[in-house]
């Protein structure tokens, strides 16, 4: 009996110790590295504060999909951005755009998703199982005209929303730099950065930033750090 009691006490102590290390909001994907073609070339933001060559004078676009039915312009012009009136991916996109400058565009589906969360979940699952390519409305910009494209999306059923497949099918980003970012509720980036590398084999695709949708508003610092690592 004594032995067991001692073991249990030791155990409780370990549990409480381990508890101290728990809890995290977003998972920055660490060093911004890219090796799109497996050439071994790594592009990292200068950890010593130096800027990677040539971020200046490049045309930057932030383009994103988000489940909220708001327009990007509204989101940008609203005085205090909040996830109450915009999607979490939208919130991050607007924040990134405010830091890096350039243009911003929202990918809006031709056919709206259901209002309810569960309805959207079911619709998204059907799209994924059917390998569909839902159409999006004309963007106000032509993404291929930009040098650096920040691409944002929420995780949907462990991968990119199918509308993002349509997006990457539509444009050819050869020779451009793609910097992905995404929101999620647990599955991180789910290997989607590598998927994008497969869609755009001739683009340089950076490891992106995965942010918990629920803590999007608290992730400004993480985003700042990540952008600084990229040289922005």
């Amino acid at each position: 009996m004594k032995k067991i009691t001692a073991l249990i006490i030791a155990f409780v102590m370990i549990i409480s110790l381990a508890g101290c290390g728990a809890g995290n909001g977003s998972e920055p994907a660490g060093e911004a590295t890219s090796d799109a073609d497996g050439s071994g070339v790594t592009q990292a933001g200068g950890s010593d504060g130096t800027q990677p060559a040539g971020t200046e004078g490049k045309k930057i676009l932030t383009v994103y999909f988000s489940s909220a039915n708001t327009a990007a312009v509204d989101a940008v012009s609203s005085a205090t951005p909040s996830v109450k009136n915009m999607g979490s991916t939208e919130y991050i996109a607007v924040y990134i755009n405010s830091k890096v400058g350039g243009d911003i565009a929202k990918i809006t589906p031709v056919k709206d998703y259901p209002e309810s969360y569960n309805g959207t979940l079911d619709a998204a699952k059907a799209e994924r199982d059917g390998d569909e390519r839902p159409e999006f409305r004309n963007l106000d910009v032509s993404p291929e005209d930009y040098d650096v494209i920040f691409v944002g999306y929420p995780m949907w059923w462990y991968t990119l929303p199918m509308i993002m497949y349509t997006f990457f099918d539509t444009y050819d980003f050869s020779g451009k730099t793609i910097i992905p970012f995404n929101t999620h509720e647990g599955s991180g980036d789910g290997g989607t950065y590598n998927e994008i590398r497969e869609f755009e084999p001739d683009a340089t695709v950076y490891d992106g930033l995965a942010v918990r949708g629920g803590s999007a508003e608290k992730s400004d610092e993480d985003i700042d750090k990540w952008l600084a690592g990229l040289g922005y």
Partner: peptide, 29 residues
């Protein structure tokens, strides 16, 4: 083993799945 397991349960957010705190699984590829 169990002590190591306890660390991993917490690190991997196991209880968050049990109590619906985490609504999607994290797959570290």
């Amino acid at each position: 083993f169990a002590a190591a397991g306890m660390f991993l349960l917490i690190k991997n957010g196991f209880f968050g799945y049990m109590f619906l705190q985490t609504r999607f699984a994290f797959f570290d590829y």
